[in-house]
Computed example of a mutant assay.
Amino acid sequence: MGASMTTVEPAETLRRLAHGATVGEALAFFDGLPAVEVPELFGSWRGGEVPTGNPMDGLLERFGWHGKRFDSADDVHPLVMDRPGGGQFSLHPGLVPLPALLPLLARRPGLVRHPALGRVARLLGPALGTRAPRARLRRTEYRGVVSATMCYDDLPIHDVFRRVDADTVLGAMDLRGLDAPFVFFLRRE
């Protein structure tokens, strides 16, 4: 009797990585996934992260990140946030000084992650909301594969997507100033 070979489904691998992984593990998983076509992303998605030790780990969740909404290739809401009293709003990414915060995140991550700052950000966040789309979807090449990519209008960020399954994608946030991408996932709502 020959040895049986066990294959692990991508969704199971993502469940494991969502509890924490090295950058190498997360990127090896990302690299093994198929490309995503732009229309596959249309709709609303709930987000989560793959903690890898990136300075961005835990930050979006602390500030109330819900996910992303892709109305069309040219109408994307990249930062859909939960309102403190219920419901969601789209945060205007250009009003978030993320590139300026990167050095602080790297040197003093605890300062930006203080619970009081998260509570204040959740309360003040709706004042930074927008109804206008603040990103677009395009196909770009990243790590040797052409796939759907969300390009922010106001920030030097590209979120590149690969398919885990029909209702789940893995994203790699390529942000100028970060040594490694922030890895996250989206599940279709």
Rank of each mutant, 00 (worst) to 15 (best):
G94F: 03
M150W: 06
L175R: 00
E9H: 15
F63N: 03
V120S: 09
T52Q: 12
G2R: 15
Y152H: 14
D74A: 13
R83W: 00
G110F: 01
A21N: 07
P39F: 10
M56W: 10
P78Q: 05
R131D: 14
L178E: 14
H114G: 04
V112T: 13
L105P: 05
M81F: 12
Y142V: 12
G118K: 01
L33Q: 08
G177A: 07
R131Q: 12
M81A: 08
I157A: 11
P126V: 01
V96M: 11
F182Y: 15
V80F: 03
P55S: 06
T140C: 02
F70K: 08
A73L: 03
G53P: 07
R46M: 03
L41Q: 05
P156C: 09
T7H: 14
L178K: 02
S147V: 08
A11S: 14
V164W: 08
R136T: 14
R108N: 10
H114C: 09
P78I: 04
D174L: 14
A148D: 06
R15W: 00
R136L: 03
A26W: 03
R16Q: 13
R139M: 10
V120H: 10
E37H: 12
E61V: 07
G118M: 06
E25D: 13
R136K: 10
F161D: 05
T140V: 08
R131L: 11
D74K: 13
L60N: 08
M173K: 00
V38Y: 09
F89G: 00
V8Y: 07
S44M: 11
R134I: 00
L111Q: 04
M1C: 10
E141W: 02
L98D: 05
R69D: 11
R162L: 05
R46D: 05
G24L: 02
L175M: 14
L79Q: 04
S72N: 09
P133H: 03
V80R: 13
E25F: 05
L128D: 02
L98C: 02
A166K: 09
P115N: 10
D154Y: 06
H77W: 11
G48T: 11
L91H: 08
R187M: 11
A116I: 15
G118L: 02
P103N: 08
P39I: 06
G118E: 10
A172M: 07
H114L: 14
G24Y: 00
G85S: 15
M150G: 05
G129L: 09
R62P: 00
L178A: 12
V183C: 13
E9N: 09
P84R: 13
R46S: 06
G43S: 10
V8P: 00
T140D: 11
L170Q: 07
V146E: 15
G53K: 06
M81N: 05
P55A: 03
A73G: 14
A28T: 14
G177W: 04
P181F: 12
V23N: 06
V145H: 02
H19L: 13
R162Y: 08
A121W: 05
E49A: 12
D154H: 12
N54L: 04
G20P: 11
T22Q: 10
F161A: 07
V23I: 11
L79K: 03
S72V: 04
